[in-house]
Write a protein that binds this DNA or RNA. Structure first.
Length: 427
RNA sequence: GUGGAUGUAGCUCAGUAGGUUAGAGCAUCGGAUUGUGGUUCCGAGGGUCGUGGGUUCAAAUCCCAUCAUCCACCCCA
């Protein structure tokens, strides 16, 4: 056990590939129907892209959860811990504000955080991300949330739940934080150590505490939703209204909080019961102000991301784990040395025609060859030795039924291409 | 960073009152079967017992350290 993948990173094996692709394909399909274009950005950026956007109090920075390093030119670079800042950077760099607004951009790829590992939490993980930049209406929020819900449904999930909240406008947030500080100050000594720290840096996050004593202290307090200003309140109600009208199931969650500073108003998460402690499949929210913060025009935005590994975990809970790896349609078995080259050449031609064909690399006897074909998962095997060569044919055998007949080489492609059921009957 | 559990073959695991060459099932390869597969039977290859140190005549087994994995805290995807 000498060399192995770095802690918190995973190999995606061939048998997992189909599931993986199906999730990304679901996103491409669903998000495409909403005219979102796919944007692929580098996996690393100048560190300041994330540092500026994320805010000083965010854990990403404070707890050094970013993989930041210096390259040979002395540039400080960071592996992306999330997509939003990088997408916004690309949006600004390419002058996308001149396109018809809003601009919808989706992405998929790895992200990195230097955290400790557990189920559903890895150091390299993968996300599907969507950003809608340039529209501040509640309709844009509802659209984004609906797309998130539908993408996951399309990927095969049936038991994911949307939780909707609001962190308010900056003034609301400031007011609520002040309220919390005041309300909790007398009990500060009773709070857990972590929560005392939160109270100092980002009081709202105290609501997130899983400490039983903390929860008791919090129980009687007002929630962020109760202290929303009029505009934020109307915005929230409108988003909820659209979702209800569209039949997107959701629950109001009055304790949704964001670790990142740039969120305003709408905040939401998708959860799934049964995938361990990290039950959030994804989350997102509105970030009016971020584009400007990163040096772009004053444009609002809303976006979300979900974790592909967590979705795959959830799919497994629903009994939709690894799909069987598809075998070749045809497996060619050379029964003598001359047939080895003939088989390879035939395979090449059939592959050129788009068929999935495999062959034995050396002469086999029929028993071995059929065994090879069987284990490769092939549907048909074709054998050829001296007597077949004389007649210019291959013995084509359907493995499942055992039916066999002689076919000329030029008959093979049309026969196999005719498709599974038809070809079977012909035999 | 903190806490708990676990590290024996590619995989799932046996194997402790310490005792010769460390086992099974599955998987792999070969043979039974040099022109017809899946079942079955036979055989083979594959192990620094996570790593390092200690105790002992003797360590997979006991002690210490260390690393890794899993789960949880924290935080989040």
């Amino acid at each position: 056990m000498k060399l192995q993948a770095v802690k918190g990173t995973n190999d995606i094996l061939p048998e997992q590939d189909a599931r993986w692709r199906s999730v990304v394909d679901a996103a491409a399909e669903v998000l495409g129907t909403a005219s979102a274009g796919r944007l692929t950005t580098p996996i690393f950026e100048h560190a300041e892209v994330f540092e500026k956007s994320v805010g000083d109090s965010a854990d990403l920075v404070v707890q050094k959860e970013m993989y930041t390093f210096e390259d040979r030119g002395g540039r400080r670079l960071s592996l992306r811990p999330e997509f939003t800042a990088a997408v916004v950077r690309a949006f600004i760099q390419h002058g996308m504000h001149t396109r018809p607004l809003p601009v919808k951009l989706w992405s998929a790829g790895p992200a990195f955080r230097a955290e400790n590992v557990q189920r559903g939490r890895y150091r390299q993980f993968h996300q599907v991300n969507l950003e809608t930049i340039g529209n501040a209406t509640p309709l844009a929020d509802a659209e984004a949330i609906e797309l998130l819900y539908r993408t996951l449904a399309r990927a095969g999930l049936t038991r994911h739940r949307i939780q909707l909240g609001s962190v308010g406008d900056p003034e609301d947030r400031a007011a609520y934080n002040a309220y919390l500080r005041e309300a909790l100050a007398p009990h500060a000594a009773e709070l857990s150590e972590a929560s005392r720290e939160r109270l100092r840096l980002n009081p709202m996050r105290v609501l997130d505490s899983k400490d039983a004593r903390d929860q008791e202290l919090i129980a009687g307090l007002k929630r962020p939703l109760e202290l929303l200003g009029d505009e934020a309140r109307r915005h929230f109600d409108a988003v909820a209204g659209y979702l209800t009208a569209w039949g997107v199931p959701f629950e109001v969650d009055d304790s949704i909080v964001r670790g990142l500073d740039y969120y305003r108003r709408t905040a939401f998460e998708v959860h799934y019961v049964g995938i361990g402690a990290q039950s959030a499949l994804g989350g997102g929210g509105r970030y009016d102000g971020l584009v400007e913060l990163l040096g772009g025009p004053q444009l609002p935005g809303i976006g979300w991301a979900f974790g592909i590994e967590r979705v795959l975990d959830a799919l497994e809970q629903e009994g939709r784990g690894e799909a069987a790896v598809e075998g070749p349609v045809l497996f060619l078995v050379p029964l003598d040395d001359a047939a080895v080259g003939e088989g390879a050449a035939l395979a090449r031609r059939l592959r050129e025609a788009g068929l999935r064909v495999e062959f034995a690399y050396q002469r086999r006897n029929p028993g071995k060859g059929l065994k090879d074909a069987d284990r490769a998962g092939a549907r048909y095997a074709a054998l050829r030795g001296g007597s077949e060569r004389e007649r210019g044919v291959w013995q084509l055998k359907e493995l499942a039924s055992g039916e066999q007949r002689e076919v000329r080489e030029d008959e093979l492609a049309p026969l196999l291409q005719a498709g599974a059921p038809g070809a079977t009957k012909e035999l």
